[in-house]
């Protein structure tokens, strides 16, 4: 369970993230949508603890969590070492490593220097790096941006299976409607640092409460609005 109360964080000259109250239950999968600069990334950084709020609090009742930034760092070492870099006990996860690398189509590149991978391969590798361990909460900031079209569907499926198997709560910022609806059951629409819509995907699509919500969903070409 994640509970946010009176959260405030100034994230640009013009905008302050301002969330009075937001609850995300364990095992829920939530898509964060909104225009560029609406505060999606800032919210993920705050929940992950990477940045501190100016005021307010975030209560997280979860043991293990991981946050995947929009532009993650690729270490100048082999794919194998990159994928295992976050593990505390390297030996334990050898079987997981093989499995995750096969799933992400990286097994043949195991010993290649990760810095020399293509953009799509790097993105798959950071997915593998995150999914090799079991997490109760995943926060992903536009995770499918550079993924090759051939791998996108299978990675979505891997992520979905992972969340179901581990009862993982997922919060994912995205600009793509298909990603949001394929992976998430709830939707948050953000605008100028505020949560303006929050609920089940179907409910928000059928009945957005705000004018901005309607306009935004139209831009997304969601015809139910």
């Amino acid at each position: 369970m994640i509970e946010i109360k009176n959260l405030k964080k100034k994230y640009s000259a013009d905008f302050t993230l301002n969330i009075e109250n937001l609850k995300i239950k364990t095992g829920e999968r939530v898509a964060l949508i909104g225009a560029n600069g609406s505060g999606k990334s800032t919210l993920l950084k705050l929940i992950s603890g990477y940045i501190k709020p100016d005021s307010g609090e975030i209560l997280i009742n979860t043991e293990k969590m991981a946050y995947l930034p929009q532009d993650p760092y690729i270490f100048s070492m082999s794919v194998r070492k990159n994928v295992r870099i976050g593990l505390k006990d390297n030996k334990k996860q050898e079987e997981n490593l093989k499995e995750i690398l096969i799933m992400t189509g990286l097994f043949n590149l195991l010993d290649k220097n990760a810095a020399k991978l293509s953009g799509g391969e790097k993105q798959r590798m950071v997915f593998a790096r995150m999914l090799i361990d079991k997490h109760n909460l995943l926060m992903l900031d536009e995770p499918f941006g550079a993924i090759d079209i051939d791998f996108k569907d299978s990675l979505e499926q891997i992520l979905s299976d992972y969340c179901i198997a581990n009862k993982t709560t997922l919060i994912m910022a995205t600009h793509t409607p298909a990603e949001a609806f394929n992976l998430c059951d709830k939707l948050i629409i953000m605008h100028k640092g505020e949560v303006i819509e929050y609920g089940q995907c179907g409910d928000i699509i059928k009945n957005p409460k705000t004018d901005f919500g309607k306009t935004f969903l139209k831009q997304w070409r969601i015809t139910d609005v």
């Binding site: 950084k45 969590m65 993650p72 760092y73 790096r129």
Partner: peptide
């Protein structure tokens, strides 16, 4: 030069 991106990634992996 490398620190901001590496820090964010390391923080995300709870290093």
């Amino acid at each position: 030069e490398k620190a901001p991106k590496l820090r964010e990634t390391a923080s995300g992996l709870r290093m």
